[in-house]
Every structure is written in C-alpha cells, then in structure tokens.
C-alpha cells in the first residue's frame, strides 16, 4: 500500500501547483520556466498537435465545399448569391456564440467545433476562388477556345492555374483565421491550444496561460509564413511579374 503510494508520488505531480511544485509554481510567479520545461511534453505539445489537426481538417473540409461551390457558381451564375449570403451570414455570428449554439445539437465536442470552424472558412475560400476564376483575362480564354480546348479543358488548364494566386491567398487567410478561432473552440471542450489558456485563466496559473498564448501566436505566424512560401512555389510567375512592375 505504502509502496504503491510512493510509486504514485514518484510519477511527479500531475497538477503543477499541487503542493510539490517549485517555489515559483507554488507562488504563481511571473513566469516559471521550470514548469514549461517539465510539462511541455505531456501538457502543451499534445494540445498543439490537436490544434493543428483541428485547423487542417476544418480548412480541408471548408476548401472542398467552397471550391466545389465556386466552380459551380462560375458556370451557373445564380449559385453565387445564395451561397455568398449563407456564408456571409455564418461569418457574422460571433464565434463563441456559434460554438455554444451547436452544443445542444452536437454536444460539447470536437464535432461542434469543426462544424463552426468549417462554417467560418466558407466565405473567404468561396469568394477568393470565384474572384480568381472570374478575373482570368478574356484573351487567355479566347486563345484556349481558338486552340480547340473544351470547356472542361479551359477550366482545368487555363482558368484554375491562373486563379491559383487568389485561391492560395484565400487558403492562407482561412488558415490563420481558423487557428485563431480554434483557440476559442476549447471553450466547448474541443481541445487544442486554447484549452491550457482557458484552464490556466480559470485556475489563475499565469505561466500556463501565457505559455499557451505564446504557442498559439507562434503557430499562427509559422502557418502564415509557410503558406507564403507555398504561394510562391505554386505561382512563381507572380513573383516575376511583381519584380518587373
């Protein structure tokens, strides 16, 4: 019995300020580096990975829906207005309210969070894709028609490649927006890096919410930077054009 208790105690404190932490943690100092070092692996890193998953899935699903809708709306103009109206309406609902609204339907869960996050990506991705497609120069399309391209070929070989910069700009904005909103999703138990933020604030443990906040900022900036690089790699002609102008 005693041996078992000792073994349990040896595992180290799971609650950082439960009696055994360092002086800094017990006194809730300005910033306790030792707590961060000790708990990064089991308290912060898994939340960060969850956050990346939440974001990737939301942007992935949102992109599939919005991209399809934009391609359809490009061919059938009447689709544009209802889809824009719907996604703009979703976009105006404060996120914390939308999350809570979904709780009675899909529960305090990951699903509720994803539904809301996908909803917020739609307007950005739809508009950018459609604008990109519509701003393809008529000359390019006429040239393709003259070369005997079918409508399908014009879409995949001319319009979509030329719309790529606008589409990528949309993906970039949607991604950073989702990272930001996903921190709030922790409020309804969706996990992610917002969880240690809310947790830390609730317990008043400064080091925890400051560190988690810094990690969220770092993640957002890293994602933004990566997407800029992807943008350049996918549309190298844009850089050439900017350099000459």
């Amino acid at each position: 019995m005693i041996a078992a208790l000792l073994a349990l105690a040896d595992e180290g404190p799971k609650i950082p300020d439960f009696g055994r932490g360092s002086d800094c943690v017990r006194e809730n100092g300005q910033f306790c580096v030792d707590w961060v070092v000790k708990n990064f692996g089991d308290q912060l890193l898994p939340r960060l990975i969850e956050h990346i998953e939440l974001t990737l899935i939301a942007v992935g699903i949102g992109f599939t829906i919005a991209f399809t809708a934009a391609v359809v709306a490009h061919r059938y103009r009447w689709v544009k207005t209802p889809f824009t109206a719907f996604s703009a309406f979703v976009y105006t609902i404060p996120s914390i309210a939308l999350f809570q609204l979904l709780v009675p339907v899909t529960g305090l869960s990951w699903t509720s969070a994803e539904i809301a996050l996908v909803g917020y990506t739609l307007l950005i991705l739809f508009r950018n894709t459609l604008t990109g497609l519509q701003e393809v120069p008529d000359d390019a399309i006429e040239a393709a028609q003259g070369m005997g391209f079918t409508r399908q070929q014009i879409l995949t070989r001319v319009e979509l490649p030329l719309a790529l910069p606008a589409i990528m700009a949309g993906v970039r904005i949607a991604t950073v927006t989702t990272i930001s909103l996903a921190t709030i999703a922790a409020y309804i138990g969706a996990g992610g890096i917002g969880q240690p933020i809310f947790d830390g604030i609730q317990r008043g443990f400064r080091t925890q919410f400051v560190t988690a906040g810094v990690l969220a900022v770092a993640l957002a900036l890293a994602a933004d930077g990566l997407l800029v690089l992807a943008q350049r790699a996918l549309a190298p002609w844009m850089r050439a054009r900017q350099a000459t102008s």
Binding site: I173, S180, I197, V210, G213, V214, A216, L221, D224
Partner: peptide, 19 residues
C-alpha cells in the same frame, strides 16, 4: 496587416493577462 490578421485574439489577451 498580414501579421496582424494572423494573431489569435484569445492568445493576445491571455499573454496580456499575464503581464
């Protein structure tokens, strides 16, 4: 503007709360 748009608002508030 790009960086500003990327900053998560909840994270900024929580960092500010600490200091």
């Amino acid at each position: 503007a790009n960086i500003g748009r990327a900053l998560p608002s909840l994270a900024l508030i929580s960092i500010g709360l600490g200091f």
